[in-house]
């Protein structure tokens, strides 16, 4: 799932003040991220109105990244008297809304952080960088591209200490986890294998038809 985080309210207010604003959320990832579901859309409406911004309407797109669905919802919802669409969805959702409404300005209300796992209701962890060629099975189902800040493919860097990452000691060293899982599963030989440089050209795909 695409994990998003709401931008600072001050920033959103700065971008919307003096405008007539329509708020668009998303029924999928942003709903599960608790950043762009119906609840958060209505909270945003309340916040903006309390701060003098005119909110012309709202919708939870189903999902925001689905161009035909988004176009259909905007045919049903009146947005003519609106200057700006505040999108509480991922970066894809913002672009799809802009594509659906060519004469409206879009404001991104969320930052798109990563493709992640829902650990608990409100706890998310990065799992995938969409690098184009999946090599997770080389590492017993743990991705060092997404989960190691240095993309180490051949073991932990020298900054790994007591299972913690040098970048942020609050973070686990994913190589510590890979190492332990592989040892448990008899994968010592696999750990000794030199993994060759990654083929990043696979991440250049732009279109699938």
């Amino acid at each position: 799932m695409i994990i998003t985080k709401r931008k600072q309210l001050d920033h959103i207010l700065e971008k919307t003040k003096g405008s007539r604003v329509f708020i668009a959320g998303c029924s999928e990832c942003a709903t599960l991220s608790h950043t762009g579901g119906e609840k958060e859309v209505l909270e945003m409406k309340d916040y903006l109105e309390k701060n003098g911004v005119t909110v012309t309407g709202w919708a939870v797109l189903d999902p925001a990244c689905h161009l035909p669905n988004t176009k259909r919802i905007f045919r049903e919802k009146l947005v003519e008297d609106t200057d700006k669409i505040l999108v509480l969805a991922c970066g894809n959702g913002v672009q799809t809304v802009r594509d659906a409404l060519p004469d409206k300005e879009v404001i991104a209300g969320l930052d798109s952080l990563f493709l992640g796992e829902i650990i608990h209701l409100s706890e998310f962890e990065r799992r995938c960088n969409l690098c184009g060629e999946c090599i997770v099975d080389e590492f017993n189902g743990i991705c060092p591209i997404a989960r190691c800040p240095k993309h180490m493919l051949n073991g932990p860097c020298g900054g790994s200490q007591n299972g913690r990452c040098e970048v942020n000691p609050e973070m686990e060293c994913v190589w510590d986890r890979i190492y332990k899982r592989m040892i448990e599963n008899g994968g010592r030989d696999q750990l000794r294998k030199i993994i060759p440089p990654k083929d990043w050209s696979k991440s250049l795909e732009m279109v699938i038809r």
Binding site: G155, P156, G158, G159, Q161, W175, Y179, R188
Partner: peptide, 18 residues
């Protein structure tokens, strides 16, 4: 380079071998 003080030791040794 090698860091003899990172943990676990065996992971450091495997890296040195590599």
């Amino acid at each position: 380079v090698a860091n003899p003080f990172s943990t676990p030791l065996e992971a450091r040794i495997i890296r040195l071998e590599k």
